[in-house]
Amino acid sequence: MKIGYRTVKTAVGTGLSLAIAQWLGLQFYSSAAVITILCIKTTKKKSYQTAWERVLACVLGLVLAILVFELLGYHAWGLTILMLLLIPLCVKLKATDGITTATVVILHLYILKEVSLPIVINEGLLIVIGIGMAVLANMHMPSSEKKLKEIQQQIEANFKAILRELAAYLRDKDQQWDGKEITETAQLLKEAKALALRDIENVAPYDCAYYYRYFEMRERQFEILERIAPSVSSLDHCCQESLIVGEFLDRLAGAVHPGNTASHYLEELEQISRRFKESALPQTLEEFETRAAVYHFIGEMKRYLKIKRDLWIKQKQKEETKKNKFNWKKAGCL
């Protein structure tokens, strides 16, 4: 059995909410603990959003409960009418997460069968304690940077393996490869993007947005790798073009890392493309098909490298903008 950080926060926050509400002598003090459990979410952003929705729904629920119960009486059909009013209003105000909490407050009034200032204050304190403790518990969220870096390294290792396997296939078509890196990479990219997105809602948006953009870039590159695999398999491993392509893939595999090497390899691809254009025209159908597959491969690899180059350029521009903004602020101009 594994106890995670969120579980610990939920347990501690629930206990503290219950203890505070009980110490204050509030009626239905256990409801404060329930509200805390409902409000603790996976990210700060979701926690704050949920807190706001619950406060809004509870206030709305209290107002409607006072009006409906005092006018129509404390009856089950009165509660039915109240819910028919509350739920559409919460949906309209985009506070659907607060319907459950508001219902708890409404049922307290229904059980007590009266409305007074002390009762309203009691319910308000339950809401403040329950939601406030949840917000405090979610103030600290652990960064996933270490995990993101590990996934980044694993994805890059898989990219290297895929490129080298494709290069090996061009040199020797008898090479056996089960393609497990492709399946593994697809799953890692999905996990990494979800984790990076969660971190954006928790920690410094600028730092974590880099990882999200990075994994988006790798995802687009991965789609290209999946596309070029069939075209590589159609190349004749005995021809000069295939050997050149294989050598290029080997060199490219050694340069898979977060840094910017795309411009260098784009230039190398241009040189390879010019070299093929200057070579003799294909004489047979097989040579023609091989040449066509080579040009298709070069076009796809250009797209592969431009995706990485564009990310690096954007990242540099963002860093420069952030640096300039800091300098202007330091100089007292902002």
Results as ranks from 00 to 15, higher is better:
160 K>Q: 15
137 A>C: 15
247 E>R: 10
308 K>Y: 08
171 R>Q: 13
305 L>I: 09
277 K>W: 08
126 L>K: 02
12 V>E: 06
332 G>S: 07
125 L>M: 06
317 Q>W: 10
95 A>V: 07
220 R>C: 09
194 A>C: 12
95 A>W: 03
330 K>R: 13
173 K>D: 15
260 N>T: 13
220 R>P: 00
280 A>W: 04
87 I>E: 06
327 N>A: 13
279 S>M: 05
189 L>H: 01
73 G>S: 08
58 C>L: 09
296 H>T: 15
202 N>R: 04
253 A>P: 04
267 E>Q: 15
161 A>D: 05
278 E>I: 12
166 L>H: 01
161 A>T: 05
236 D>V: 09
185 T>M: 03
86 L>F: 07
139 M>G: 09
298 I>Q: 02
270 E>N: 14
299 G>C: 09
123 E>D: 14
210 Y>C: 03
267 E>L: 14
331 A>G: 10
5 Y>S: 14
238 C>T: 11
25 G>M: 05
21 A>H: 02
123 E>I: 06
140 H>V: 08
5 Y>N: 11
109 L>P: 01
189 L>S: 01
125 L>C: 04
289 E>L: 10
7 T>L: 13
77 W>V: 12
7 T>V: 14
11 A>Y: 01
34 V>R: 08
327 N>T: 12
19 A>F: 12
123 E>N: 12
45 K>A: 13
179 G>N: 03
240 Q>M: 12
101 T>Q: 04
251 R>M: 10
199 D>L: 05
51 A>W: 01
141 M>R: 02
85 L>C: 09
